[in-house]
Simulated scan of single mutants.
Amino acid sequence: MQVQELVGIVPWTFVAQICNLFIQMYLVKRFLFKPVNEMLQKRREMADAQIQDAQKAKEEAIAMKTEYEQNMQQAKEKASSIVTEAQKTASLQSEEILKTAAQEARAMKEKAESDIAQEKRKAVNEVKNEIGGMAMEIAGKVIEREIKEEDHAKLIDEFISNVGEAS
């Protein structure tokens, strides 16, 4: 009976298997690992480029945000200064208007007072002229006739009634 060896090493087969293993490793390395590594390297470079682009975009966005915030701050300051200036201008104009109105009111009051004084003088002069005229008439009447008590009282009553009508 012959026993077959289950585990045995045949030297020529072992050498052939080792050579076959090295050839397969060389072929896998040459045709599989190199292209895969090159593809992975390209993908890595592409990912790095995208990351750098994203960082540049982020930096640009931050710069734009900073510029926007500065512009907004400047706009707020400018608006505030415009409002302050407008308030000052309005205040000055209102003060000028109030001064002008006060001056005009004073002028109108002075004119009215002078007009009243002038009218008063005019009225007094007219009354004086009328009284003078009546006195002349009375004196003329008194001279024309003799004055009796009754005539004298009558002339006084007539004078008073004439003065009452004139005023």
Rank of each mutant, 00 (worst) to 15 (best):
A107M: 11
M108C: 03
M108H: 12
K109E: 14
K109A: 13
E110W: 11
E110K: 15
E110G: 04
E110M: 13
K111V: 10
A112R: 15
A112E: 12
E113V: 00
E113W: 08
E113D: 09
S114K: 15
I116Q: 12
I116Y: 10
Q118I: 13
Q118N: 13
Q118W: 09
Q118S: 14
E119H: 12
E119D: 04
E119R: 15
K120Q: 13
K120L: 01
R121N: 07
K122N: 15
K122D: 09
K122C: 10
K122R: 15
A123S: 13
V124Q: 09
V124N: 12
E126K: 12
E126Y: 09
E126Q: 14
V127D: 02
V127E: 06
K128F: 10
N129Q: 10
N129Y: 01
N129D: 10
N129E: 09
E130F: 12
E130Y: 14
E130D: 05
E130G: 06
E130I: 03
E130Q: 01
E130L: 03
I131Y: 03
I131D: 01
I131T: 04
I131L: 10
G133K: 15
A135Q: 08
A135P: 00
A135H: 07
A135V: 11
M136S: 15
M136G: 13
M136Q: 07
M136K: 11
E137R: 11
E137K: 14
E137A: 03
E137S: 02
I138A: 06
I138D: 02
I138T: 02
I138G: 07
A139V: 06
A139E: 05
G140F: 03
G140H: 03
G140K: 09
G140T: 03
G140P: 00
G140I: 07
K141R: 12
I143E: 12
R145V: 07
R145L: 05
R145P: 08
E146T: 08
E146I: 03
I147V: 15
I147T: 13
I147R: 11
I147N: 08
K148G: 04
K148P: 00
K148R: 05
K148Q: 05
K148T: 11
E149G: 05
E149C: 05
E149V: 03
E149L: 13
E149T: 10
E150Y: 02
D151I: 08
H152R: 13
H152A: 14
H152L: 13
A153V: 09
A153C: 01
A153E: 00
A153F: 02
K154P: 00
K154A: 10
K154F: 04
L155R: 13
I156P: 07
I156T: 05
I156F: 05
I156L: 14
D157I: 03
E158L: 02
E158C: 02
E158I: 08
F159N: 03
F159L: 05
I160Y: 10
I160G: 04
I160T: 15
S161V: 03
N162W: 04
N162R: 13
N162G: 01
N162M: 07
V163T: 08
V163H: 11
V163Y: 06
G164W: 09
